[in-house]
Nucleic acid binder design. Structure first.
Lengths: 205, 205
DNA sequence: CCTACCGATCGGTAGG
DNA sequence: CCTACCGATCGGTAGG
């Protein structure tokens, strides 16, 4: 009775585990995703769950991967085809704000929470988080440089400085959304982005 | 032999526990400050430690209190007497950046880390963190209003917007310091503050 | 402040 | 994928 699932079944189970783990991690932190609890929520045994990953660290890395895929789908994935330089930056920041505003994950931005949780430790999980953080900022910086070369942003723009300030806006957005549930805060994020990217007050909400 | 310590001894022990707990919490999170581990580091038994607080939650609240005192000493405490309005804002932001730059706590800003850890939960710890967060921003907002009234900041300044952006700068500072240990990042924070508070490039490093 | 203890849960393994 | 189990640690209590 229900022995030997197929490889497709096993993959499906694995995806369910990781998706639920990501959900949980955004609310309770990556360390709060314990094997026993996650197994209970997915409806399998601890040993069954562990069979998919081997160790808790491998499970954590799988959750980090899933978070990276979700972010890639929600932010850069939504602005593919809008062009480059300033147009890309404006669209990407709007997608970024919208992603946080819609509360795609119940606990807000997974990376912010996980970075705060793991930045004092060492090992592959911290390295994966830091690497993904760097990669995304590299993409943003590249588009800032293009915007400067195209004359869309002032020639004396410091790309690293602009990236720093955009990241700050998003960190503050996540911070206030999670800690205060203040519904006015996405509008503040949009206003701050508009000021940095040389736009007038944003037209649409 | 060594029974019945005096009330002063007990207070001293309590302070040692809380100080070590704050240290630990900044690196590993407030939930990572377990009773057994903290007792071991302080050199007393679990039951002895728990006698000072009763529950883990009371210990956590004591650590939050200690963090609030440290911040009050390091930031607003350093700018008492520099005046109000824009002078206060510039001095307070410099103290804030300096506090993070010097790495007073090994894991960076306790409140940022604890807020990220507890913002998805409910209860007195979350409430204490959110309340302290609000209080500090209220102080900053008050000084923004004074600066506007005094004509030191543009009359169309939105105080909440400015507070939002200042918080973002500090969150980004902590984020990059902890995740990348990039020594250039305090200079970026100072540049961002200077731009918001209408200063030229900061003179001193 | 201590020793001694409680039930629950942790990550993980053995063996199927 | 399961049951059954491991040692370690969790928060907390009893009693002194």
């Amino acid at each position: 009775m229900s022995p030997r699932r197929s490889a497709a079944d096993a993959l499906g189970t694995r995806q369910r585990i990781v998706a639920r783990g990501l959900w949980l991690a955004s609310e309770e932190g990556l360390e709060g995703v314990t094997i026993g609890r996650l197994a209970g929520e997915v409806g399998i045994s601890k040993a069954g769950l562990l069979g998919h990953f081997g160790t808790k660290q491998a499970l954590q890395l799988a959750v980090v991967d899933a978070a990276a895929e979700l972010f890639a789908r929600e932010v850069p994935g939504r602005v593919r085809g809008v062009g480059s330089g300033l147009r890309w930056l404006r669209a990407a920041c709007e997608a970024w704000v919208s992603y946080l505003e819609r509360g795609v994950l119940p606990g807000g931005c997974f990376f912010t929470a996980a970075a705060a949780e793991f930045d004092g430790r060492e090992g592959p999980v911290r390295d994966a988080l830091a690497g993904l953080d760097s990669l995304w900022q590299r993409d943003v910086r590249t588009q800032v440089r293009r915007a400067v070369r195209a004359g869309e942003l002032s020639a004396d723009t410091d790309p690293d400085q602009l990236v720093y300030e955009l990241v700050g806006i998003m960190l503050a957005l996540n911070h206030f959304l999670q800690l205060r549930r203040d519904p006015e805060v996405p509008a503040r994020a949009r206003r701050a982005v508009a000021r940095l990217l040389g736009e007038a007050e944003p037209g649409g909400q």
